[in-house]
Write a protein that binds this DNA or RNA. Sequence first.
DNA 1: TCTTATTTGTTCGTATGTATT
DNA 2: GAATACATACGAACAAATAAG
Lengths: 255, 255
Amino acid sequence: MPLEKSRPQYRQIADVLRDEIERGDIAPGSTLPAEPELAARFSATRPTVNRALAVLSTEGLIRTHRGRGTQVRRIPVIHRTAMARYDRKARERNGAHGAFDTEIRSLGMEPRTETEVALATPPDAVAEALGLAKDEQSAIMRKRRMQADNVPVQLATSWIPAEIATGTQLAEVDSGPGGIISRFRELGYEQVRLTESVRLRRSTDEEQEFLGLEDDQPVVEIWHTGWTKDDRAVEVCIHAVPAYLWVLHYDWPLT
Amino acid sequence: MPLEKSRPQYRQIADVLRDEIERGDIAPGSTLPAEPELAARFSATRPTVNRALAVLSTEGLIRTHRGRGTQVRRIPVIHRTAMARYDRKARERNGAHGAFDTEIRSLGMEPRTETEVALATPPDAVAEALGLAKDEQSAIMRKRRMQADNVPVQLATSWIPAEIATGTQLAEVDSGPGGIISRFRELGYEQVRLTESVRLRRSTDEEQEFLGLEDDQPVVEIWHTGWTKDDRAVEVCIHAVPAYLWVLHYDWPLT
DNA sequence: TCTTATTTGTTCGTATGTATT
DNA sequence: GAATACATACGAACAAATAAG
C-alpha cells in the first residue's frame, strides 16, 4: 500500500507498525496479526513482512514466537539512577530491598530478585581488575537475576576476592541491612569511590536465555567497580540489561 | 561450508566474518570480497550472504556501499570520561581545546570539530528543561560536528536560553579559555551540578547523514544538563554517538 | 499421547533497481 | 555507456515451535 518509493517496503511497513505500537493503537502485550495477514494488508509478500518484524524485534518493540505469534512488549522503559543507588541514606532507607526494587516499584510493577552465591573462577578481565594472583583466581560470585512483573529485565554478577568475602556475610545470599557496601565497611574495606563503564555489546547465550533476547538484540553492559581509599578494587559488578529497556542517569557536583 | 545445523547459515557466516575482522585477519579499512565471492566461499546464495553482512553492518563492524563494496570500520572504540571532561583543572589544561580532542588524540588520531552557532527554536523537551516561556521559545544553539581522522564520530547540540547567552561569548563560535562553563560562571550562572541521561535510540536522518549510519544503526544519546545552585537548568547538551563506537566512563566518590 | 493446523524462521533461485567506478 | 556491486522483493519451499483437538 504505502509506495512512497525510495524507502524500502520493509522499512515502510516497520514504520507504520512502530507508529501504531508507540501510539498505543496496538496495546502492550497484544498479539499482532499473523504475517500472511499483514502481507495482505500491505500488499507485500510474507518474507518482506517478516523482515519488517525483524526490524521491530531488534528494536525491542515486539517479541516473535514460532507457532504462537508476535506480541508487543509489555514493559515500559526503566530508569536507573547510579548515584542514588549507592548513596548511604538511600541504601538504609531501602532496608533489606535494593535500589532495583525502588526503580521497579516506581513504575507500578512488582520486582523480584533471585540471588545465587558461589565460589567460582572469574573471567580474566575481572580477575585482573581485582588484582587476583595467577595462582589464586577464585572469587565469591553473587549472581542476581532480576524481574519486573515476572519479566526478566536485568542480570547482574558481582565478584569479590575470596580473601575478603569467605566466611563473611558477603558470601551469604542475604547481605544484610544496607547491602554489601555496608558489609565491606565493617570488614575494613570501605568503598570510597565508585566507577562505572557503560557500553553496548552483543548479548551472550546466558543473557539471551534469561532476558529472552534474540541473537541480534544487544545489551548495555555496566561494569561497576568499588574502590577503597588505597585505590584497591574490592568489588566488580557486571550488569547486563536489554539495551532498549533502560535509561541511565548520572548526577554529580561540579567543582 | 559451516553446516552446524540449528544455527542459521546467515548467522554462521556473520560469525566467521566477525571473528576474522576482530582477530585482524581482515584489516580495518580493507574491502571484503564481493558478495558473490563470499557466497561461493560459504556455499550459499547471495541474498544469504547479504543478510549476514547486514548483521555486521548493524553491529557497526562494516560499512557497505553500492557499487563500491564493503569496508571494515577504521575507527577503534572511543572512551569518554564524563567527570574529567568538566573538571575545572582539566578544562584549563586543555586550553582552547576540549575534552573531545584529548579523547581522540589519546588514540593517536586527529580530532576535528566544526562549530555552528545560531539563534533557533529548541525541541519541546529542551524548551521545557530550560524552563522557557511559551511565548519566548528561542535559544542559542551550539552545534558541534566532531570527527576523528576525518571520520564523523559525534554530533553534539547545546542549547542555552537566549536571555543568558545573547550578546555574550556563549553566542560566539570561540567560547574562550576554559570553555563555556567558565563563561557561565563569569556571567553569574555558575554551574554547580551536572546530570547526564544515557539511552539508546534510533538515529535521526541528520545523524544518519553526518555520522554515516544506516537506518538500523542506533545511537547512544547523552542528554547533558548543567544546573546552577538555584537548581535552574542553564544548559542542555544532547550528544549523539554511534552506539557501537563509544564507551562511557563515570567516576564519583561514595559518601 | 498423538496428530494436525497454525505461525514464524530460513533459504533458495530469480529478477530488478540503484549507486559507483 | 558499460561493468561492477550492493539493496530489495517475489514466490516457493521446507523446517521448527506451538497450539488445538
